[in-house]
Design a protein around this nucleic acid. Structure first.
Lengths: 118, 118
DNA sequence: CACCTGATTCGACGTCCGTCAACATAGACA
DNA sequence: TGTCTATGTTGACGGACGTCGAATCAGGTG
């Protein structure tokens, strides 16, 4: 395996950009806590409820939730005046796989992120 | 399980900061490519060799290698006038574990990052 | 209809980041 | 010793980011 001397480009420039975007979404303590909160609760939560448990303001929470939503780490579901956010369980598979790809761990095939939604 | 209403704080403010620092180190396409290059080659590489395969300047590569070294994703080994960089294989274990912790995947115990060095 | 409440967006501020060119450092070798 | 080569560091510049308060928008409710 890996028979050529060319760097087996599993991670080319384009993929590097995508991966970087994912990591960038987690490159902030507040977002990590938000994501962990949602994951730990394991249920859709409203913004207000999340704000109550966060040390930052409501607009900040809203902003971070938007960032996490854009990279599909969390999914949103509007219900009238309220908006429920929940963690996207697909990340459990796709994210460690991305790390494995970067670290050239060939044993794991990178699954497609095909949870159609948005 | 999860009998209390307190968020089971596996990821508290301090841990969130640490994790964010790790992710921040990967939140850049260039660093991801550098890390992947080192991982794919699977051997210590000199800065010049890395620069040859990178689209950015030498000082930039040096800077990014420093960042990756500070969070221990890569290890450095000085040899006279040259410096060899190689990927830290411990990341293969500790990094997915961190992701699992954030995503509240309780099944994996977070291993200590005790590859004494630095 | 007027009002209240929950959520997003806007504008601003200070800070940090990625990149480069230029300079500084430090082994190797004649 | 002096020079060469490989690497690290500095300073600067442009752009992006995190946070906040204020303004705005959109559903319910009376």
């Amino acid at each position: 395996m890996n028979r050529s001397n060319r760097t087996s480009t599993v991670v080319d420039a384009e993929a590097a950009g995508s991966y970087a975007a994912w990591f960038k979404a987690l490159a902030d303590p507040t977002r990590i806590r938000l994501l962990h909160l949602l994951a730990a609760e394991g249920r859709p939560m409203s913004v207000g409820e999340i704000v109550e448990r966060s040390p930052v303001g409501q607009s900040t929470v809203s902003h971070h939730l938007k960032v996490l939503t854009e990279v599909r780490f969390v999914l949103q579901e509007k219900q009238g005046t309220s908006t429920r956010y929940q963690v996207n369980r697909t990340c459990l598979t796709v994210f460690p796989a991305a790390v494995a790809a970067i670290l050239a761990e060939a044993r794991t095939e990178l699954p497609r992120e095909d949870d159609r939604g948005r």
